[in-house]
Amino acid sequence: MKPPRFHYHAPGSIPEALDLLAHYAGDARLLAGGQSLVPMLNFRLVEPRALIDLARIPHLSGIGDGDPIVIGAMTRQRAVEDSPIIARRAPLLREALRWVGHLPTRSRGTIGGSIAHADPAAELPLILVTCEGSVRVEGRAGSRMIAAGELFDSMFTTRIGADEILTEVHVPAVAPGSRHGFEEYARRHGDFAIVAVAVSIEPNAAGGQQVRLGASGVGQIPQRLVAAEAILEREGLSADAIAHAAAQAAASVDPVGDANGSADYRRHILGTLLERTLTRTTAPIAATA
């Protein structure tokens, strides 16, 4: 199992990389960390005429300490996981990263590559959708921002143009006192999730709680569980409210069954995982209420 032949370019700037994309007119692939693309090449699931390696472009990695937190697209997943900024200000992202593949894949895999690949079972697109992040993409006409809710189109497909490059991932910093939880079910640790859930609970200005719930594995793209969020914001975070929200979440999704699980099975796993994660995430809040 070896990759097919391709031309290889390692441009030194984004404009050069954009020129190359235009030059190959849709028949080139951008190479970030390669942890999905190289296996696809080995299997010959993709046979591009050229690879454009982004790794030699300066300033595409790094983590800013503003709000939002700006993470360079080529920042290795392991660097994000180990970042004190992320631990303090985007703890949901940090917790989810521990579920991304294994340590040796996170050494090479990048945050931007995973998001642009848009695997429906991947953790990082789910986190971006749940925390209402966004990405910056650069094209020959300039740069634009795409909100996470608009970014994912269908499985493995985003609304980033074929002539554009994802350069930054923007993650909102959480308010002090917020809580988070992440859990997924897979056959083995490190495998892609059958279903994953992400929970973020932040104090809001009105003295209440802003609840954000996301799930993957229950549709073509990661989704917010808005009906369940509304129940928790209305009924609070009691055990009854959590059970109600989990049941509503399971009823609200329309998964497609496959070899890893039927649609009913995925709905069941979603309800179970969401109830478990919410219970764990809110336990200290409930104890002091």
Binding site: Y8, G34, N42, R78, P104, R108
Partner: peptide
């Protein structure tokens, strides 16, 4: 210094 898989990495990378 970091464990990495060499079947998912091109030599040129």
């Amino acid at each position: 210094g970091q464990a990495s898989r060499t079947c998912t990495l091109l030599a040129v990378q």
